[in-house]
């Protein structure tokens, strides 16, 4: 009888850790720093602040920049897994905010835009986190502009990952021919869904709560 009880207790306790992991969220935000898009960084900071208010203990959050070569840990501006204790999590949020503010202040625009590399890096980071929901936020115009020699036409593995493109600004050429804008987003949607992920676009920054739905 006592063996059954011990076994039940073990099962409950094992279940508890899994339950904890599945209720947490992993968020990786890619910020485009190429060309004139650096002018949009204030908006990125606004999104990060909003995300920080919504993150809870056990959640993981990272912010990385998209530049000429984004598939590297060096591009991660700040990353954190929020502590179990709410007070410590609050301190982490403040420190994170300060790190992001410093990045926004000092960042320089890059010559090229490697979004795919950033997504690959994001997926790699998120896979390592013991979280239930994995989300990649791409703060970019979604126009990839690779430097010579960089290979990025590789299939993405995004099973269980949601990719949300935020603040996808229209380029001058998009205004001339809107089909370019639409086809750009369609291409990304197909790439993400082909990799097993979900793709959404949120351009209205007044409804950021949609990120967490």
């Amino acid at each position: 009888m006592w063996r059954i009880l011990v076994l039940s207790a073990c099962l409950v306790l094992t279940g508890c850790s899994e339950g904890a992991a599945s209720s947490n969220r992993g968020l990786y935000m890619l910020i485009d720093t190429s060309g004139t898009y650096t002018q949009e960084l204030d908006k990125a900071q606004q999104i990060i602040s909003y995300a920080l208010t919504r993150m809870e203990s056990g959640d993981a959050f990272a912010v990385a920049r998209i530049d000429t070569a984004s598939f590297t840990e060096k591009n991660i501006v700040a990353k954190v897994t929020f502590d179990d204790r709410p007070s410590a999590a609050n301190q982490q949020k403040r420190a994170f905010q300060e790190a992001v503010a410093a990045f926004v202040k000092d960042t320089r625009s890059s010559a090229h835009t490697d979004i795919t590399g950033g997504v690959l890096q994001a997926v790699e980071f998120l896979r390592e986190q013991p979280v239930g929901r994995r989300t990649v936020l791409i703060f970019s115009d979604m126009e990839e502009d690779l430097a010579r020699g960089y290979v990025r036409d590789i299939p993405l593995s995004l099973d269980g990952v949601e990719v949300i493109a935020v603040n996808v600004t229209k380029l001058r050429s998009d205004n001339v021919d809107p089909r370019k804008y639409m086809s750009r987003l369609d291409e990304w949607k197909q790439r993400v869904e082909a990799g097993g992920g979900k793709f959404r676009v949120i351009n209205d920054l007044d409804r950021l709560e949609a990120i967490f739905q």
Partner: peptide
């Protein structure tokens, strides 16, 4: 939650 953590569940 400060004492026993805010994420673990049973």
């Amino acid at each position: 939650a400060e004492m026993v953590g805010g994420t673990n569940m049973i």
